[in-house]
Amino acid sequence: GLPEGWEMRFTVDGIPYFVDHNRRTTTYIDPRTG
């Protein structure tokens, strides 16, 4: 799974992105792969 505090969501286009609730940021880069 994802690191603690992270969540995976999808855009309206079906593109996955990642929400970091710890820092309240979003990124398209998987936190597991950097």
Rank of each mutant, 00 (worst) to 15 (best):
Y28W: 15
R24G: 15
P16H: 04
F10E: 07
V19L: 11
N22F: 10
G1P: 15
R9W: 06
T27M: 02
M8W: 02
W6G: 00
Y17A: 02
D20Q: 02
R23F: 11
R9L: 12
P31Q: 06
Y28E: 09
D13M: 11
R24M: 15
D13W: 10
D13Q: 13
M8F: 04
T11Y: 02
R24Y: 13
T25K: 13
R32N: 05
L2V: 03
F10M: 10
F10W: 14
P16F: 07
Y28I: 06
F10V: 08
E7R: 01
H21I: 11
L2D: 01
D20L: 05
V12I: 13
T27R: 02
I29P: 03
F10D: 01
F18Y: 10
R9H: 09
D20R: 02
T27A: 03
R32F: 06
R24H: 15
E4N: 11
R24D: 15
R32Y: 04
E4A: 12
P3N: 03
Y17W: 07
M8H: 02
R23K: 13
D30I: 00
V19W: 10
T25R: 15
L2W: 06
V19E: 06
P3D: 06
R9F: 14
P16S: 05
W6E: 01
V19Q: 03
P3Y: 04
P31Y: 03
I29W: 10
N22Y: 11
I15Q: 08
I15R: 13
T33M: 11
I29H: 12
G1N: 11
D20Y: 05
V19F: 13
T27Q: 08
T11V: 02
I29L: 12
T26A: 12
P31T: 01
N22L: 12
D20P: 02
G1H: 11
T27I: 04
D20V: 03
P16D: 02
Y28K: 06
G14D: 07
P16A: 10
T11I: 01
G1I: 12
R32D: 05
E7V: 09
R24I: 08
P31L: 00
V19N: 01
L2M: 08
R24A: 15
G1W: 12
I15G: 02
E7P: 00
G1S: 13
P31K: 02
G14S: 06
T26K: 14
R23V: 08
Y17E: 05
T26G: 06
F10I: 10
P16M: 10
T25Q: 12
R23Q: 14
D20K: 03
H21L: 08
G5T: 04
I15W: 11
F10A: 05
R23A: 14
L2K: 03
P31N: 03
T25L: 15
G14R: 07
